[in-house]
Simulated assay, not measured.
Amino acid sequence: MTSSPTRRTVMTSLLGVLGLGATACTASGHGAQASGEDGGSDEGFPLTLTDCDAEVVLPAAPERVVLLDSAPVTTLAGLGVLDRVVARAGSFPEGYYDDDLTGRLAGIPVLSEDIDTTGHLQISQEVVIAQRPDLVLGLPDGVTREGLRAAGAEVLIPRSYCGGLEERARFEMLFEEISTYGAVFDRAAEAVALVGALQERIETAAALPLGVSTAAVLYASAGGGPLYAYGAPSMATAQLDALGIENVFAGTAQRVFESGTEPLLAADPDLLIVLHEGTVPEEELLTELLGSSRLDSLRAVQDSAVLPLLFNFTEPASPLIVDGLERIGDWLSEQEQAG
């Protein structure tokens, strides 16, 4: 099993990230760098990006955005472009946002809130196209790049969802994602500032006193479905590394995989983090997951070291994972002081 890097190693790897923030995106403006100095230049366009295995060409900064994934909300807000979102679909639990951002989201028309038991959005492509977007963030089942492109819209999805990732997740991946959005929306300066603020918060969270050394991050399907765990390419591993905690599944080169109970029982971590979509009350979720005898023998269950966490606080890479890092660190610090 791969050992977790020390907190010092993780923090050292973040040095120089502010310089990375302005240049690390996989994007090129034909002969020019995108500029967001005043939020209004088009010098970096047309802009060509590689999104998963697809080439995306944006003739100008998007003006009509449809959100099919809640993860980009805080990135868009941090860059000052949330007002370009004309519609949204999926689960946007209030627990992710402060009152101001919650109010702003409430003013965006909702296309669908239909989420299946594995947390996937159910929506038709025709409903999305009817909004006349020039950019769609997220690509749920039933919606295709080709179909949207034919209607004049390009698609971006988080790199975490592209598949084929095998390297251990690092917070630099978050900063690169923000840098890409900065280029897309012509907000490069705002992207650098957002990266700097997040870096400071990560360093503060990493200094908290904690009392655990191993953890597993799980996703429990609603209705007693399969149990999933998160491996090395998951941002869960980056969070745990920053806190000096070993992800017991970091030796797995899959971002998320169906685990079953046996590997979890064999690893017997000090801490369980249970991700969920917010569609079921946390108490009900934990009762369903832990109510049977199958996990009773786990040390984390016996010690009540089980932390439910809204999904986007860990996946994919967005400013919300720094919120998640702080929540994990604060909760463990409180447990340590109380014990």
Rank of each mutant, 00 (worst) to 15 (best):
S13C: 04
R84Q: 07
A183L: 07
E262G: 09
A151S: 11
R159D: 10
I178C: 05
H30M: 14
T23M: 14
L14S: 05
G291A: 09
W331D: 06
E258F: 05
Q199K: 14
P109R: 12
L210D: 03
R168Y: 00
S293C: 02
V10F: 06
G36E: 00
E55I: 11
Q335G: 03
G16M: 10
R64V: 01
E94Y: 07
T314D: 03
R327W: 00
T287N: 14
A250T: 05
Q337Y: 12
A305K: 04
F175A: 06
D270F: 04
A242Y: 01
R8I: 11
V256P: 00
D42T: 13
E154S: 11
Y230Q: 09
F185I: 03
A216F: 11
P133A: 08
F92E: 03
A205M: 07
V306N: 05
F175M: 06
A54T: 15
E258K: 13
T26P: 13
R170L: 02
P319K: 07
P72G: 05
P140G: 11
L79A: 09
A229S: 09
E284T: 15
A338K: 13
M173W: 10
G329A: 12
L58Y: 08
G39P: 09
D116E: 04
G231E: 00
S213R: 15
A266R: 10
N247F: 08
H120P: 01
G339V: 01
I123T: 03
V66I: 01
L111S: 04
T2H: 15
G182N: 03
S221D: 13
R187F: 02
G329C: 01
E37F: 13
G80F: 04
D296A: 15
D270C: 06
E283A: 14
T102A: 14
S179P: 10
L20N: 08
Y97W: 09
L218N: 05
F311K: 09
L285Y: 08
V217M: 07
L165Y: 07
E315L: 08
D141M: 11
Y219W: 12
G244H: 05
A32R: 15
L67W: 05
T261L: 12
S91T: 12
V127R: 15
P233E: 00
S179I: 07
E154L: 04
A130K: 05
G260W: 00
G31R: 01
P62N: 03
L307I: 07
M11H: 13
V280H: 09
G211D: 09
L47P: 03
S179N: 12
L286K: 10
V280I: 14
P319N: 07
S124R: 14
G138V: 07
Y97C: 05
V66Y: 00
S35E: 10
L121I: 04
T214H: 09
F92A: 03
C25E: 13
A61S: 15
P281W: 08
T252I: 11
